[in-house]
């Protein structure tokens, strides 16, 4: 197994890389201009965080790979993002539900990381907390607004929740890498974040008049890289194509 810290940083960076990419797919086709601009801001924040996380991952690894090298020259099995973020955009409701579920986890994770024993991780987390606080405010408002809006918007949001809820559990699974981070005081145990997440989720869903699925089944395999969904490969063929087709070029 490679260095757990490197693995861990790839998990953080791949989450923001993959989700930032997904959100950027909305550019130019959002339901209303104001939303188009807001989504681009979210994507830009996430791309910026990716540069920091993967940049640090490359430094830790010490093999001369920078953030771009890691983003554009690894294969599907090397990616360490949770399955939730690679799920396709679907309709706007699915996109915002995915965003809300991730933001809720992301913010509590980043707040914990801001107190990390690792100085650079703490610094990146502190910067990201400000950005993600706003992401969460916005996605929460949207989930509530659309859940409580019209019959159609309510139905679509419920469908989005049903579709994505099986990907929630993976964010809170702990493995050896997490344990190593906990031991070194670098990061919290993901499982410890679940209770607060559930409370927040329940509150928002109640206001949104949405019902949490009864089945707690959770897909896994993203953050370990053991088994991604088919969607990630398609995303990478697009994202990495130029770099792979012209490996000797600089851009």
């Amino acid at each position: 197994m490679s260095d757990p810290l490197f693995e861990y940083l790839c998990r953080l960076g791949d989450n923001t890389l993959v989700l930032g990419h997904r959100v950027s797919e909305w550019c130019g086709v959002a339901p209303v201009l104001e939303e188009d601009i807001a989504l681009a801001n979210v994507a830009l924040d996430l791309i910026g965080q990716t540069q920091l996380w993967l940049g640090l991952a490359g430094e830790v690894e010490g093999d001369g790979r920078d953030a771009d090298r890691l983003a554009f020259h690894r294969d599907v099995w090397d990616f360490r993002n949770v399955l939730l973020v690679e799920q396709p955009n679907g309709d706007f409701g699915q996109t915002m539900m995915r965003q809300f579920l991730f933001d809720t986890w992301h913010l509590s994770m980043l707040k914990a990381l801001a107190g990390s024993s690792h100085e650079q991780i703490a610094a990146i987390a502190e910067k990201s907390v400000k950005e993600v606080t706003y992401h969460l405010e916005r996605s929460t408002d949207t989930v509530i607004g659309l859940g409580d809006g019209t019959e159609e918007s309510h139905d679509r949001m419920q469908k989005a929740l049903d579709r994505l809820y099986p990907f929630v559990g993976e964010m809170f699974l702990s493995d050896d890498i997490d344990a190593a981070m906990v031991t070194q005081g670098i990061a919290p145990d993901p499982a410890s974040l679940r209770k607060a997440f559930d409370a927040q989720l329940d509150a928002v869903l109640a206001e949104a008049t949405l019902t949490k699925p009864a089945d707690d089944f959770a897909h896994k395999g993203g953050k370990t890289g053991a088994r991604h969904t088919e969607h990630l490969g398609h995303m990478l063929t697009q994202m990495q194509w130029l770099q792979r087709a012209y490996p000797d070029a600089s851009w």
Partner: peptide
């Protein structure tokens, strides 16, 4: 984009 976004615009307005 306009047609797909209709339910969103209407939903948020209704809320």
């Amino acid at each position: 984009a306009w047609d797909d976004g209709r339910w969103v615009r209407e939903g948020l307005l209704a809320h």
